[in-house]
Simulated assay, not measured.
Amino acid sequence: MTDRNLTEKVKVELADRSYDILIGEHVLLGAGKHIKSVLPDAKCAIVTDENVAAIHLEALLENLKAEGIEAAPIILPAGEATKSYAHLQTVIEAIIEMRLERGDAVIAFGGGVIGDLAGFAAASVRRGMNFIQIPTSLLAQVDSSVGGKTGINSPQGKNLVGAFYQPRLVLADTTVLDTLSEREFRAGFAEVIKYGLINDAGFYNWLEQNWDGIKKGGKERIHAVATSCRAKAAIVARDERESGERALLNLGHTFGHALEGITKYQSDVLVHGEGVAIGMVLAHAFSARMNQSSPDDTQRVKTYLEKVGLPTDMSGLRNHVKSANQIMDFIAQDKKVSRGNLNFILTHGIGQAYIAKNVPAAEVHAFLTEALES
Rank of each mutant, 00 (worst) to 15 (best):
E184W: 00
V176G: 02
V170A: 07
T179C: 03
Q156C: 05
V161R: 08
F203L: 14
G112F: 01
G202Y: 05
I132K: 00
K194W: 02
A118M: 00
V146L: 03
I214H: 01
I214G: 05
G162F: 07
L169M: 12
G213K: 03
Q133E: 08
V192R: 02
G202F: 07
L207T: 10
K219F: 14
S144P: 06
V106L: 05
I132E: 09
D212M: 13
R183Q: 02
T179G: 04
F203D: 10
A187G: 00
T179Y: 01
E220F: 11
I198W: 04
V125E: 08
A163V: 13
F185H: 06
G157F: 11
S124I: 00
I114M: 01
S145E: 02
V225P: 11
L117Q: 00
A122V: 02
A187L: 02
F189N: 05
S145G: 12
A224P: 03
G112K: 05
L207W: 09
A190L: 08
D116T: 04
L177C: 08
H223L: 13
Y165R: 12
K149S: 11
A190P: 05
I222Q: 10
S181P: 06
V176L: 13
N199A: 15
Q209V: 12
P155A: 15
V161C: 13
G218S: 06
A187W: 04
T150R: 13
I198L: 12
V125N: 03
Q166L: 11
R127I: 04
E220M: 10
G110L: 02
S144N: 08
H223P: 01
V125S: 09
Q209T: 14
E208C: 15
L138D: 06
K158R: 13
G147N: 10
I107T: 07
G213V: 12
G196L: 09
L117Y: 03
D173V: 08
S144H: 05
K158I: 11
L138H: 01
G218C: 09
A224V: 13
R186G: 00
G128V: 06
A121D: 11
W211K: 08
V176C: 13
Y195V: 12
V192A: 10
A201E: 15
V106D: 12
G111D: 08
T150I: 14
V176F: 02
P167Y: 09
I132C: 00
Y204L: 05
N210Q: 15
Q133Y: 00
E184N: 13
T175F: 03
H223C: 12
R168Y: 11
G162H: 10
F164K: 10
I222E: 15
I134Y: 01
R221I: 04
I132Q: 08
T179N: 01
A108Y: 02
K149G: 06
I193M: 14
S181T: 15
F120M: 05
A172K: 03
D212P: 03
G217W: 06
I152G: 10
Y165G: 08
S181I: 06
L139Y: 00
V106N: 05
L169G: 09
F109R: 01
I198H: 07
I107S: 02
Y165A: 09
K216C: 06
G162I: 11
V146G: 04
T174I: 12
G151A: 06
A172P: 06
I222L: 07
G188T: 05
D200Y: 10
